Computed example of a mutant assay.
Amino acid sequence: MEQLVEWMNENTLATNILKYVFWVVLILLIISVLRKFIKKSLPDNSIRYKSQKGIEIIGYIIIIFLSVSYFTGNVKDFTLAIGLLSAGIAITLQELFLSIAGSFYIFFVKVYKPGDRIEINGIKGDVIDIDSIYTTMMEIGQWVSSDNYSGRIVKLSNSFVFKGAIYNYSKDFPFVWDEFNLPIRYGSDVELAKSIVVRICSEVLSEYVSESKAKWREVVNKYYIEDAQVEPSLAITMTDNWIQFNIRYIVDYKKRRFTKHVLHEKIGKAILETNDKVILASATFEIVKIPQINIEEEHKEASNK
């Protein structure tokens, strides 16, 4: 025992390193225990997730302060060694450091948060976790049409927040504009068709319109942006084949596909009930003239031979 104490007194650098490792391991164990306790105790997913992340961040901050107190001004040789190694580490682990910096940027600037639907680096999905290095998303699209989950979980480096555009579907304004075209045959009752489309859109989209108006006012007050129309709008275009109705409307970003399905179903059913006063158009081809082939004359020439 005396030899151990004597060795520790003679090797202050090694002693400080051992103490530092001990405290770091102890703090990490406490974080792990608290995270498990919170996971079992809190039933609400949102509160549980935020509490776990809060404890993790507090633990990392304590480790940073502990590192500063141990290795700033107390151990000269160790500080010198750290200074020499830092340049090489910064080069070899620059992507890691950039990811850690990205996590702080995401947290403090609130670029996105768990639950947001984003598109970053060409990947679209719902954010399900953000840690110190990676953003984890449930992927949307790819081989699956529309806004459905593909089933793949994607881990993306946080460094990508510094490398390109980030599309957030839910921050500040959780609505998107969508549209579709409706071809109406020439000779149909256009006024009746317009009334059907306007009536059904107003019925189906009334909830989204009222909610989006309040949210859009907040966006206008926060950003330098002009006011926009959130009510459904109808534009008519005369084409070579039909009268084209373009219906544009606002919808919850998570219900875009379902809402379009409801609109198509209700409008299609209402048009069928007009007893052919309104008819949906389709692409048709008219054959003007078939070239004549004189088969009889060719047959006579063949017989004479």
Rank of each mutant, 00 (worst) to 15 (best):
L272S: 13
I120F: 10
V219C: 04
V33W: 09
T259I: 10
K39A: 12
L28H: 04
K300R: 07
D44W: 15
I55D: 00
N74K: 08
I247N: 01
L93F: 14
V144T: 09
E226I: 11
V75E: 09
F107D: 05
R248T: 11
I106F: 09
F71I: 03
G59H: 07
L98P: 01
R257H: 09
I17P: 05
E203R: 15
G59L: 03
E298Q: 07
T239I: 11
D172R: 04
I106W: 01
L234S: 05
S150C: 04
K40W: 08
F65W: 13
V209L: 13
K171R: 12
I61T: 15
A101H: 03
I123K: 01
P114I: 07
I200E: 12
E265K: 12
V262G: 03
A90C: 11
D227Q: 10
V176K: 01
N181E: 14
A283P: 15
T284F: 07
K39W: 15
D252E: 13
I100Y: 02
K254D: 08
A90L: 14
Y249C: 05
R256G: 00
I57C: 04
V230L: 14
G151H: 04
F180A: 09
G187H: 07
I89F: 15
K305I: 13
W177N: 08
S202G: 14
R185H: 07
S212Q: 01
L263H: 00
I47L: 15
N241Y: 14
E265S: 13
L156T: 12
D131H: 02
F160G: 00
G164W: 07
P114W: 03
V68Y: 15
I38P: 10
T12A: 09
E211M: 03
G151T: 05
I293H: 04
E179P: 11
I89P: 02
P43N: 11
G164I: 06
I27M: 09
G88M: 12
E10M: 14
I133P: 03
R256H: 09
I225W: 01
F108N: 04
S303M: 13
L182S: 05
S159I: 13
E211H: 04
L42F: 14
A14L: 13
I247M: 10
D44L: 15
G122S: 06
K194Y: 02
Y60L: 13
V204H: 00
V33H: 11
E301N: 06
A193K: 06
E203C: 07
G151S: 04
H299A: 14
D252M: 00
K76F: 12
I63F: 09
V33F: 15
Y208H: 08
E218T: 03
I140P: 02
E207G: 08
E231C: 10
